[in-house]
Write a protein that binds this DNA or RNA. Structure first.
Lengths: 238, 238
DNA sequence: CGTGCGCTTGACAGCTGTCAACACTTGTGG
DNA sequence: CCACAAGTGTTGACAGCTGTCAAGCGCACG
């Protein structure tokens, strides 16, 4: 997952006890819509999912990307976002009732609270980036998140379109495209087709992300570097 | 409260059963710091409180304002923000244990989950504003929120400084100041000293906020107008 | 091989941050 | 009560970034 999404961590050691259904969606298909009753939550098995909001004037805002192992759609009452398949996807679908009703001591509920607080914290960091960072800094942070998400492989896969990236980072596709070109010209990355980027100079990219490299320590433990702020996936955070 | 803050609604019919302590802070004083163990939560009795994050490069980001009746500091584990008194304040302080431990069926916990999901939804709307709105639109939305918070009184009180407003809206004090002047020149508001604004043309201000006026309906029920997006106070939402 | 969509690039304008100067308010001390 | 200083807010000039408009490229698909 990339940022700011409520997602109770119920995926460890629980799935085996809960009825689930495997579902497939083709690229671009709607999984659930904003405002629908939130009766199910989902786990990505294969592929990539995006969650988004549409606004009156037609503008779209993406609130997160979800990859294999990530949980999405864990909302209360009604879905606050829509969810769509970025690529062809295979997902597991669970009924909400299975979490909230069928357990007496409700450890999951407390887990959900903990997860939500962390999601709030993550959302606040995301807000900071959107308020204070330039296009270059945002894209650098985004790429570093995908890099980490992909197991630190220097080849970063970008399953989503430029338009998706733009709507996630609060930019236009033009600026995203220009920024890719700019980062490549500076020798930080190499763009390899639409859906792949090769990381050349990780340390400098960290600096562009407003981040110091790993061997430099932040001022104190409570601070989190901007580049780390987009990438609180719900798997690793568990 | 103004936007994006986790705050379980435990203030109705519960306070009377829970030990609390009244505290006073003078303008500018720190109430709790980012990263401290979250052992207490607070309710504003009188005055205004702000929550903020400080980043490595020295930049400050405000995540919310809290007024009489609002709850803040309801975090899990560690505070994800600092809290400071904007004005001299009187607040009630509650121990976390009183919420999570001393009740067997834990209805509060479920209430907290519900509240948190709404806070997440609110945070996502705030993100949208920060991504897609101009200074004028942000300030207009902000003023309308304060207007509503103040009981729809045409005189809007601004207890916070320009700097606070800037750090909340992701702008500089210069832009905030210019935007105030601009709104006044257009005849939408009248600036009356540092801490007071008189609302002249509410309908037009709504339009500036990217909002249609109340008598126009949004496209469908699930949509929420941008101007409404900063002002999900935890009192009214309860 | 041709078509269309997604992506890239360039020119330009508008918004907002930066820098600088000044005005106004508040508080202190004479 | 006035003088002064410090802090806060306002205003202007300017530059840089990013959105808009427009054109063209290139890959994917038929």
């Amino acid at each position: 997952m990339l940022t700011a999404i409520p997602a109770p961590d119920v995926s460890h050691g629980l799935n085996s006890h809960i009825r689930s259904t495997a579902l497939r969606f083709r690229s671009g298909q709607l999984i659930f819509d904003e405002g629908q009753k939130a009766t199910r939550w989902y786990e990505v098995v294969r592929g990539t999912v995006r969650t988004c909001r549409f606004h009156i004037d037609g503008q779209r805002h993406l609130t997160g990307f979800y990859f294999a192992g990530d949980v999405f759609g864990a909302d209360h009452g009604y879905y606050s976002t829509a969810a769509e398949a970025v690529t062809d996807v295979l997902i597991e679908c669970y009924r909400v009732g299975d979490i909230t009703r069928e357990s007496s001591p409700k450890p999951q509920l407390e887990g959900a609270v903990s997860m939500l607080f962390r999601a709030m914290s993550s959302a606040q960091r995301y807000q900071f980036i959107m308020c204070h960072r330039t296009a270059t800094e945002r894209l650098a942070a985004f790429l570093l998140c995908l890099h980490q998400q992909g197991g630190n492989n220097p080849r970063i896969r970008l399953p989503m379109s430029r338009s998706d990236i733009a709507d996630f980072l609060g930019l236009t596709i033009h600026t995203v495209s220009r920024t890719f070109t700019d980062l490549a010209r500076r020798g930080l990355i190499k763009v390899d087709g639409r859906h792949s980027v090769i990381l050349i100079d990780k340390a400098r990219l960290f600096r562009f992300a407003g981040e110091y490299h790993d061997n430099l320590l932040p001022r104190n433990g409570a601070e989190i570097h901007p580049a780390a702020e987009l990438c609180l996936g719900n798997r690793s955070a568990a």
